[in-house]
């Protein structure tokens, strides 16, 4: 097996890529600009060496603690809890949350062998009980696992006395009621706000 075949095989193992897309990428790289290919190879090599989970919030970073945790302009009294490190990037992109984050590294799912002890829940409780936190925002996914995790966190944080909120679920902005799926529509009705 030559390098091209190995590359296609390895790319096809990545999420979201099939054999066809993998070979398209590999053939593109064969003819692409040399600097792009070198930069890509270098970044791939450095990825696991330099990027680690932040010791405080769990987001991926090359410095510890990460830039968000050390940013003095951020609101240090509010923590947004997410399932995965990539969720931090998503929420950061909307510039709505100016507080800190806490990445759980998953969600409770006994069927997949993930219990509360396998998640970064103890460190969250510790962070919150140290004081100075006025709100914990739960931004886990609207799935059974995400919901279970959120309900579990409410229980785990109860003794701290810190208010816990859950992000709202409902219709996409700019969307049309006609095209909304019924489950989302029903949920947006249950979570309606007073004008």
């Amino acid at each position: 097996m030559n390098a091209l075949e190995r590359l296609v095989g390895n790319l096809a193992r990545l999420p979201g890529l099939g054999k066809k897309s993998a070979s398209r990428i590999a053939y593109y790289l064969l003819r692409a600009d040399e600097t792009l290919v070198r930069a890509l190879a270098e970044d791939l090599g450095l990825l696991r060496q330099t990027i680690h989970a932040c010791g405080v919030c769990g987001a991926y970073t090359d410095v510890d603690p990460c830039g968000i945790c050390t940013d003095s302009h951020r609101d240090r009294s509010s923590i947004c809890v997410v399932e995965e490190a990539r969720d931090v990037l998503t929420i950061e992109s909307i510039h709505e949350h100016r507080g800190l984050y806490h990445v759980l590294m998953g969600a409770i799912s006994p069927i997949d062998g993930v219990g509360p002890d396998n998640l970064r829940i103890a460190s969250l409780v510790e962070r919150v009980s140290k004081g100075g936190i006025r709100e914990v925002i739960l931004a886990t996914n609207p799935t059974v696992e995400g919901e279970t995790t959120a309900l579990y966190l409410v229980k785990a944080l109860r003794d701290s006395g810190v208010p816990v909120s859950r992000i709202a679920f409902g219709l996409p902005v700019g969307g049309d009621l006609e095209f909304a799926d019924k489950q989302t529509l029903a949920r947006s009705f249950r979570g309606r706000n007073a004008f």
């Binding site: 409770i108 006994p110 219990g115 919901e147 279970t148 309900l151 579990y152």
Partner: peptide, 14 residues
């Protein structure tokens, strides 16, 4: 079955 009492209460609610 696995005696995970800590999560059981959450599942009861759901």
């Amino acid at each position: 079955r696995e005696n995970r009492d800590d999560v059981l209460e959450v599942y009861d609610g759901q």
